[in-house]
Simulated scan of single mutants.
Amino acid sequence: MPGTRISPAQDLAPSPSPLERRRSPPTTLSYRYYTTYGLKIASQLELPELEPLPPETNPDIRIQVGDLTGRLEDAVVSTPWLQCNNKNCQFLIERVARYRSEQGRCIRIDRRLSLAGGSTVDEGDVRLYLLGSALGALIHQRHWLPLHISAVQTPAGVWGFAGDSGAGKSTLAAWMHYRYGWKVVSDDVGVIKPEESLPILYPGPPRLKLWKDTLERLGIDRAGLVRDLTRKEKFHLNRHRGFTRKSEPLKALVMLERGLDNEQASIKEIEGVEAFRIVMSALYLPEWGQRFNGPARLMQVGSGLAQRIRVYRYRRPWSLERVEENLKPLTQLLHDGAGHVR
């Protein structure tokens, strides 16, 4: 989901403009068909970041463009920028669009803008919040588990990497692909369906987001790449060839931690309550997970996942010059086939 967390302090405007300029959509908008996170999508908005599908008579969700009311009716949570009830949520990104995710089945987008004098909004900005926060809310409405991770198809199966912003999730996934030839399963968000017998990880859009210094270190030309909306030194590699389309069981989740410059890299398996905490800390948009699932159910599915996969804590110095050296404990474990590290 192309990675935007809902945060009133950072990602969303604190209040909408009282005036909106209407930009009427065509009377009839045709549907295009895509897939991501194991969903079949019929969309009135073109989504070049996603894998296309043939026309689908029974899509899982629909994305529709049209006018929305200023506020969501019967909202339990209500602010100028966000309203939620027990089944739906609506939020405003000022100068971009208003979005409504409904009952895990539909996302509506209102393209009326609060811009002056004929300005236009980049379509990529509209899609950014659609494929991030709006789709993330819809996944929670379906009672699935979206994880804020990068995941790689390693010799030991699919491993996911979690951590705070800047922990190196995307960098690690890109390095493993470009240096070792391992396919990327997902970057930013992957989805688990708790009702399935195995913890299958369903990949998101085939897009890597890498910092300028990582691109240079890997020898990737920045020409033609899309700059990140909020971080000018970060670039998007859309429809990246390094991704696999397969959905496979998640074997392990690794929490990335930044060590001291002179510290030796180490990896340790975590069990019990701490493993559960790591799984829960990797949840994407946790506030909406609680809203649409309830705390008890969310804890239940998080605990169930922690018991079905291995959980590790991987601590290493953050240095692009020493990546290979710092990766040795992790790659040795992967080549040994998910062995036992205590």
Rank of each mutant, 00 (worst) to 15 (best):
K234L: 06
L260S: 13
V226P: 12
I192Y: 00
R258E: 07
G190F: 03
L256C: 05
V254M: 06
S197C: 08
K232T: 12
E248I: 10
D188A: 01
D188I: 05
R227C: 07
I192D: 02
K193S: 07
L250H: 05
R241K: 14
G204I: 07
D188F: 00
G190S: 05
L260K: 13
L201W: 04
K234G: 08
Y202H: 04
G204R: 01
N238K: 12
L218A: 11
T214W: 00
G204T: 06
K251Y: 00
L250Q: 01
A252W: 02
R241D: 12
D228R: 14
I192L: 07
R258C: 05
K234M: 11
I200C: 10
V254F: 00
D188W: 05
L229I: 15
V189Y: 01
Y202G: 05
P206D: 02
V191I: 04
L229D: 15
T230G: 08
R227Q: 14
Y202T: 03
R207D: 08
R241Q: 11
F243E: 07
K232D: 13
E248A: 07
K212F: 09
V226S: 12
K193N: 14
N238E: 15
K234A: 14
L198G: 08
T214M: 14
K193E: 13
H240T: 04
L256N: 10
P205G: 04
R245K: 14
G242S: 13
L237C: 09
A223V: 12
G219Y: 01
G219A: 06
K232I: 11
R241P: 13
L225W: 02
L201N: 07
H240A: 07
R239V: 05
L237A: 11
S197R: 10
G219I: 09
G190C: 10
H236L: 10
K212S: 15
G259Q: 02
E216K: 14
L229K: 14
D213E: 15
R222D: 13
L210C: 14
D221N: 15
L256Y: 03
I200G: 09
R207I: 02
S197T: 12
R258N: 04
P205Y: 03
K209Y: 02
N238W: 04
V254G: 00
V254I: 11
K246V: 02
L201H: 03
E195A: 10
E195V: 00
R241Y: 02
P194M: 00
D221H: 09
L260I: 00
E248H: 05
S247F: 03
S247W: 03
I192C: 08
V254H: 02
G242C: 12
L260N: 11
P194Y: 03
F243N: 14
D188E: 11
P206W: 01
K246F: 01
K234P: 13
K193D: 14
L198R: 06
Y202K: 08
P206F: 06
K234I: 12
E257A: 01
G259H: 00
G242F: 08
N238L: 13
E233N: 15
R227T: 13
P203K: 07
E196H: 09
